[in-house]
Amino acid sequence: MSLIQEIFLFFLAGIRKIFLRFKKNKKMKEILAVYYMEAKSTRIGGRKVAWITSGGPVEPLIAMDVIPVYPENHGAMIGASKMGASLCETSESMGYSSDLCSYARSDIACATVNGGPIGGLPRPDMLVCCNNICGTVLKWYEVQARYFNVPLFIFDTPFCHTGFSEEVRRYVRRQLDEYVLFLEEACGKKMDHGRLSNVGKLSLEAQRLWQAVLDTTVNRPAPMSAFDAFYHLALIVTLRGTREAVDYYR
């Protein structure tokens, strides 16, 4: 079998798995299937892929035409498809303690075997780690940056225990500029700031709409459950800053 055929079959298998994953909600299924197909076929389309943490600012990636991929969502997908146990065993054989976060362990193992429910995530060209969610992501992304030998940007957001302070604001603001420089270097092109501002507007709009969706639950009876909220969360995380996310929540 030629290499081209092999690649074709690999993608076909991946896409079939993706469709099987998202058969629940038609609209969500379509949007996320296209997203994962795009992400998995970037090698052909020439677009770059960034792995990013769930709380990381995704807008600059969208503005740079980089496809954001979320290893945390991948960890959840692995868990939901009951494939976590065997991948965690693999990570343990790599030396990772069984006490460590299972999302991280299953993703770290998955990268080495291209396994899991969608045949592994598309290979990253860069990694963006924002530690506002936890300290674990820092270690997880360091592991992956060494494994894939790609640049890592750490977006360091100091934890606010009792309040937000001016020096934190300055530090985080400066890092936004560093983030853009990092992307320009990793992508080999300049940021289009007009486009970034447009992406920012779409992001804010989607966030406002998502908040309005969540606010509907103050009604009795509530029109949706917490599980529905987790389900519909996917786009505000994954495709924040795009027109699709705004349309979906509207």
Binding site: D156, P158, F159, C160, T162, V168, Y171, R174, E178
Partner: peptide
């Protein structure tokens, strides 16, 4: 008292912070 030091220690902005 919390002393929320930077997590990355290899940039100028982290040094200032």
């Amino acid at each position: 008292l919390d002393v929320v030091l930077p997590v990355k220690l290899d940039t100028e902005s982290a040094k200032t912070y």
